[in-house]
Design a protein around this nucleic acid. Structure first.
Length: 797
DNA sequence: AGCACGCCGACT
DNA sequence: GTCGGCGTGCTC
C-alpha cells in the first residue's frame, strides 16, 4: 500500500467549519460528491459528506473511512455546487449546507440508531442493570449513560456486537402518523379517574396531544389511559397529506391574462432556454402575479423542464398554492413547514424521480432535487422569512435561489408589491430587468387609504387602541354585511404589566424583556424564550394587588370587540390560535365561509390572503417596529402596510383601509397611504446611501454571547481588535462598528455583544475568516463564549 | 458540539 | 493525599 493510498476530503456536521482528510481502505470504491460516508471522528463515529479527492496530507496520520452510508450521492452536480457555494458565501460548514438539503429523516446524527442484539448476555449485565430486550432501541438517555461511563464502553459493546448501529438512509416506519387520541371506554372512566386528583371528562372526537396537554393531561396519564383502554390512539391517513388543506382553484386555468400580465409573461418567456437573467416583477397587490407565474411555469413544462417556486414561510393560506394546484394538479408538490417528516420524504423522493416537476415551498425548497431546471420564481421576494438566522446555515433563500438559477443557467423571476431596496436598486442600475404591473385585473381597484392620527383621535376615556374614525368604519362595514380585517402586530393580552403603586414591571429573568400577559391560562409569557409565569396577582416588588394591564395585544382586542360592536363575530388569527397544521386552515375557511365578520390577527393576516367579502382593513397600529434600531425598520413597515392594505377590496371596487398611527407625518406612512412604492424607494435608498447601508455595502453581523457579561465584553473586544488587524493584513476595506450590546442584550440567560462589519468585500472577508478559523480553532477565543457570524443579516436584533 | 486533558480547591 | 471543578484545545 503505502503511497498507493487514496485520500478524500470529508465534511462532518457541527461547528467545525473545515473538511477532514481520510484514506480509503478500499481505494477502488467509486464515490460521488455529496455521498454520505461513516467516518471515525475523535472517539466517535459520525456520518460525513464526501467532498472530493485529496493529496496525501503532511503533518498527521489519516484514519480510514469506515463505510459508505448510501450507495449513491443524493446531490445532482448543480445542487452540490449550490451547497458548497452557500458554505463559502455564508461562512457555514459545508456539511450543514448539505444536510439542509436532505429531508429531516436523513439528518446525520439522529439517523444513527443503536439496538441491543441479545449477544453476549454476560457482558450486558456487567454494564447495564436493567433487563435488556434484544432488538430494542437504546433511548438517548441510555446512550448518554453509557458514554458517561467512559473508557470507550459504547464502542466496545459495538465491537462485541452487544449493540449494533444502524444508519438509516431510508426509514422503515409505517406510513401512519399519530394525529391524537379518542375516548374509547366511557364506562370505566369514572372507575379510573373518580378517585384521582386529575379528573378529566371524556371527550368527543379526536384531541391532539397538545390539546390534551392544555387541559392538564400529562404524558403519564395518557400512557396509563391507553393501557386501561380509556383512550385509543387515532392515526391520520397519509393519503392526500398536505393537500387536504389546500384546495385547488379549478377556475384559474381559464383566467385570461390582462394586457400588462401578458407583456410580463412574454418578456420572461422569451428568455426561457436563453441562459441566466434576473427579472424583478413589481406588481401592485392583487395584480395577479401568481397567474403570471402559472402561465410561465406551463411554458417551462412544455419545454420539458422543471420549475422551482419559492414563497414566504407561512403561506398555508395558499392563494399561490391553490393556483398552482389548479393549473398543474399532480405534477406540483408543496414543501411546507406544517408537513410531517414522512410527507417531506415522500415529496422529496417524488421530486428526485421526476414525478413532480414543479415545487412550491419556503426557503428550504431552494434545495429541491429538481433535475433539468428551467425557471426559478421567488414570490414576495422582499419577505424577511427568506433569511434563515437561527440554525446554520444562515442563508438567504432569495439570494440562494438566484445563485441556483445562475448555476443552472436559467432565468429567475422575483416578484413583489414592495420589492426589497436591494432588488429594486439592482433593477434601477440595470443588473436586473424591471417589469411592472400597475393595475388589478377587472373592476377591482386599489383600496382608498385613510390615515388617522392617534395623538388626537383616541376615544377619550375609552380604549387606547381604537380611534373614533375606525370605530365608525367598522360599524358601517358590519351593517352592510361585509367583512373586515383588523391588524395588530402584537399577540397576547397585555404587553406590559405595571404595579400601580410602585411602578414595577415584571420581566423575563432570562431575557430582561417585559413579560406579556396571556389571559388563557392566566400566564405571563416571554415572547423571546418562552419563559412562563403563572398567577401573577400581586406585584412581586411591593405585594400590592393593584396590577395594571397596559397596552393591547390581539387577545385584549378580541375580548373588547363584542362590547364595542354589537353583532360582531370575531376570529383571532395569531400564532397562539393558529398553531398546528389544521387550526390556521380552519380559522381562515370559517372566515371565508362568513362564520365571522371580523378577522383580527398579527403578521399572519397580511400575507397572501384573498377574501372577496373583505371591504375594510384596519391597521390598529402602524408604528410597531418603526423605532427599533434596525436599518430595515422602515422598509419592513412599508411592506407590511402595503400588504395588509392589499387585503381589502380584492374583487369588488371600493375597498377601504384605515391606518392608525402616532407618526402621520412620517414619509413612510404617507407613501404607504398613497401606495406609492417608487416615492418610498427614492427616500429610503437615499437614507441608505447616507448611512452607508445595503445596497451600498454589505453587512456581516458578529454576535458574541455567553453567561458571563464581563467575559463576553472582553472577548468581543479582543475579537474586534484581531479582526481589524487581520482585515488590514488582507487588504480588506471595511467599517467595523462595536462591539456594542445587541438590541436584545440579554436573551435566554446569555449576554450578547455584537460587531457590525460594513464592507463591499464580503467574499474576501469570509475567506479571511475561514482561513483564520482553520489555523486557530474558535479564532482563539475562550470557549466560555459563543460566536455567531451572520452574513447579509436581515436584522441585527 | 462533544470529549479528554490539566491545573487548583474541598474533602477522607 | 485524592476527587472533581470547568477552562482550554482537538477532532483528519
Amino acid at each position: 500500500m503505502g503511497n498507493s493510498q487514496r485520500y478524500v476530503r470529508v465534511a462532518v456536521n457541527g461547528p467545525v467549519r473545515k473538511s477532514f482528510i481520510y484514506h480509503l481502505s478500499d481505494p477502488s470504491v467509486c464515490l460521488h460528491p455529496g455521498q454520505r460516508l461513516l467516518v471515525p471522528f475523535g472517539r466517535s463515529r459520525l456520518p460525513g459528506f464526501y467532498l472530493g479527492e485529496a493529496d496525501k496530507p503532511a503533518g498527521f496520520e489519516t484514519r480510514p473511512i469506515i463505510e459508505t452510508i448510501d450507495a449513491e450521492s443524493f446531490f445532482p452536480a448543480e445542487l452540490f455546487k449550490l451547497c458548497t457555494w452557500m458554505a463559502d458565501y455564508y461562512f457555514a460548514n459545508p456539511a450543514d449546507c448539505l444536510s439542509a438539503a436532505l429531508p429531516g429523516l436523513f439528518k446525520s446524527r439522529r439517523a444513527i440508531q443503536y439496538r441491543w442484539t441479545g449477544d453476549n448476555i454476560a457482558k450486558q449485565s456487567s454494564v447495564v442493570n436493567q433487563l435488556i430486550k434484544p432488538g430494542k432501541r437504546l433511548r438517548p438517555v441510555d446512550i448518554r449513560e453509557l458514554r458517561a461511563k467512559g473508557g470507550g464502553l459504547l464502542e466496545e459493546l459495538i465491537r462485541t456486537t452487544v449493540i449494533i448501529e444502524e444508519y438509516g438512509s431510508d426509514d422503515s416506519r409505517t406510513g401512519k402518523t399519530l394525529s391524537g387520541y379518542a375516548t374509547a371506554n366511557r364506562e370505566s372512566w369514572e372507575d379510573f379517574f373518580g378517585s384521582r386528583k386529575f379528573r378529566p371528562s371524556p371527550f368527543d372526537g379526536t384531541q391532539s396531544k397538545a390539546e390534551l396537554t392544555a387541559e392538564g393531561w400529562t404524558e403519564h396519564f395518557i400512557k396509563l389511559s391507553l393501557k386501561q383502554g380509556l383512550l385509543v390512539p387515532v392515526y391520520e391517513e397519509r393519503a392526500g397529506g398536505i393537500f387536504e388543506f389546500v384546495s385547488a382553484r379549478d377556475d384559474v386555468i381559464d383566467l385570461k391574462l390582462t394586457e400588462e400580465q401578458q407583456v410580463v409573461t412574454v418578456s420572461v418567456a422569451n428568455r426561457l432556454g436563453n441562459g441566466f437573467k434576473v427579472f424583478l416583477l413589481h406588481g401592485v397587490t392583487g395584480s395577479g402575479k401568481t397567474l403570471v407565474y402559472c402561465h410561465l411555469a406551463r411554458q417551462v413544462l412544455e419545454r420539458g423542464q422543471t420549475v422551482l417556486v419559492l414563497t414566504p414561510e407561512i403561506s398555508l393560506s395558499g392563494t399561490a398554492l391553490a393556483y398552482f394546484r389548479g393549473f398543474f394538479g399532480q405534477t406540483v408538490t408543496i414543501l411546507h413547514s406544517a408537513m410531517t417528516e414522512r410527507e417531506r420524504l415522500e415529496s422529496w423522493k417524488g421530486i428526485r424521480t421526476g414525478r413532480f416537476r414543479i415545487v412550491v415551498g419556503p426557503r428550504s425548497a431552494v434545495f429541491a432535487p429538481l433535475d433539468n431546471l428551467g425557471l426559478v420564481i421567488v414570490d414576495e421576494e422582499h419577505d424577511g422569512s427568506y433569511k434563515q438566522d437561527d440554525p446554520a446555515p444562515r442563508f438567504h433563500g432569495r439570494d440562494t435561489a438566484i445563485m441556483r438559477a445562475r448555476i443552472s443557467n436559467v432565468p429567475v423571476l422575483l416578484g413583489s408589491a414592495s420589492p426589497s431596496i436591494e432588488s429594486y436598486h439592482n433593477a434601477r442600475t440595470g443588473r436586473y430587468k424591471l417589469l411592472h404591473i400597475g393595475r388589478r385585473p377587472g373592476k377591482a381597484s386599489l383600496p382608498a387609504v385613510q390615515v388617522v392620527d392617534m395623538k388626537s383621535q383616541q376615544i377619550k376615556g375609552g380604549l387606547a387602541f381604537l380611534s373614533f374614525p375606525l370605530k365608525k368604519k367598522i360599524d358601517s362595514c358590519l351593517q352592510r354585511g361585509e367583512q373586515a380585517i383588523l391588524f395588530l402586530n402584537r399577540r397576547g393580552h397585555s404587553p406590559q404589566l405595571k404595579c400601580a403603586e410602585c411602578g414595577h414591571v415584571p420581566k423575563c429573568p432570562h431575557c430582561q424583556v417585559n413579560l406579556t400577559y396571556h389571559k388563557a391560562g392566566s400566564k405571563l409569557s416571554c415572547h423571546y424564550c418562552g419563559f412562563l409565569r403563572f398567577n401573577y396577582d400581586v406585584c412581586e416588588s411591593c405585594q400590592s394587588i393593584r396590577v395594571l394591564y397596559l397596552g393591547a395585544g390581539t387577545q385584549k382586542v378580541e375580548e373588547e370587540i363584542p362590547r364595542l360592536f354589537s353583532g360582531a363575530t370575531v376570529a383571532r388569527f395569531d400564532s397562539d390560535t393558529a398553531s398546528g397544521r389544521k387550526n390556521a386552515y380552519r380559522i381562515l375557511r370559517d372566515f371565508s365561509d362568513g362564520k365571522y365578520n371580523l378577522l383580527l390577527g398579527t403578521q399572519m393576516v397580511t400575507k397572501g390572503l384573498d377574501f372577496s367579502g373583505v371591504s375594510l382593513v384596519g391597521v390598529l397600529s402602524a408604528d410597531q417596529g418603526l423605532d427599533l434600531p434596525d436599518f430595515r425598520a422602515t422598509e419592513k413597515t412599508f411592506a407590511r402596510l402595503l400588504q395588509v392594505a392589499g387585503r381589502s377590496g380584492r374583487t369588488s371596487s371600493g375597498g377601504e383601509v384605515l391606518i392608525q398611527t402616532f407618526y402621520p407625518e412620517e414619509q413612510v406612512i404617507d407613501d404607504a397611504a398613497r401606495q406609492d412604492y417608487v416615492s418610498f424607494f427614492e427616500h429610503e435608498v437615499e437614507s441608505r446611501r447616507k448611512g452607508w447601508y445595503p445596497p451600498f455595502c454589505r453587512l456581516v453581523n458578529i454576535v458574541v454571547s455567553g453567561p458571563d457579561e464581563r467575559k463576553v465584553e472582553q472577548e468581543a473586544q479582543i475579537f474586534a481588535e484581531r479582526l481589524r488587524q487581520a482585515a488590514q493584513e488582507y487588504g480588506i476595506s471595511m467599517t467595523l462598528l462595536g462591539p456594542a450590546p445587541c438590541p436584545f442584550y440579554f436573551l435566554r440567560k446569555q449576554f450578547r455583544r455584537h460587531l457590525l462589519v460594513k464592507t463591499k468585500q464580503t467574499v474576501k472577508l469570509v475567506g479571511m475568516l475561514t482561513s483564520w478559523e482553520a489555523s486557530q480553532a474558535r479564532f482563539g477565543l475562550s470557549s466560555s463564549v459563543k460566536l455567531v457570524i451572520d452574513v447579509d443579516p436581515d436584522d441585527m436584533m
